[in-house]
């Protein structure tokens, strides 16, 4: 296995959960409406206009979903539940088990 020898930075750990929402880069227009509607103010606008908002305080997310509900482009932003808290269910007829993805 060849590991690319790139510059290694002295980075701190990420907060957990670190990814409360996921942007779809192809759909997000960088309009920052989610930044405006976020109650907890977890986002800040990107330095350059039109780029994806920055999730500056991911661990403060309340998971209310207002950023998704109020986004003008369907599918541009999705909630991403913490892995620990993804709820399970069972299909009655087959007994198969599923969970939030």
């Amino acid at each position: 296995m060849q590991i690319k020898n790139t510059e290694v930075l002295r980075t701190p750990n990420s907060p957990t959960p670190g990814r409360p929402v996921i942007f779809n880069q192809e759909k997000c227009t960088g309009c920052n409406i989610c930044v405006h509607f976020c109650m907890e103010d977890i986002f800040v606008p990107a330095a350059r206009k039109g780029e994806l908002p920055i999730i500056l305080y991911p661990e403060e997310c309340w998971y209310c979903g207002n950023c998704v509900d109020d986004c003008p482009v369907p599918g541009a932003i999705a909630l991403n539940h913490p892995l620990m808290q993804r709820v399970r269910w069972k299909r009655k007829a087959t007994g198969e088990h599923f969970r939030v993805r």
Partner: peptide, 25 residues
């Protein structure tokens, strides 16, 4: 309900939860 539309109804539905077939744990 406050805080269910996207995090529960939409997220679970998109993951395939079907109230006519599935039982939520």
């Amino acid at each position: 309900e406050g805080k269910t539309r996207v995090p529960v109804l939409q997220t679970y539905s998109q993951a395939g939860f079907d109230p006519e077939q599935d039982m939520l744990q």
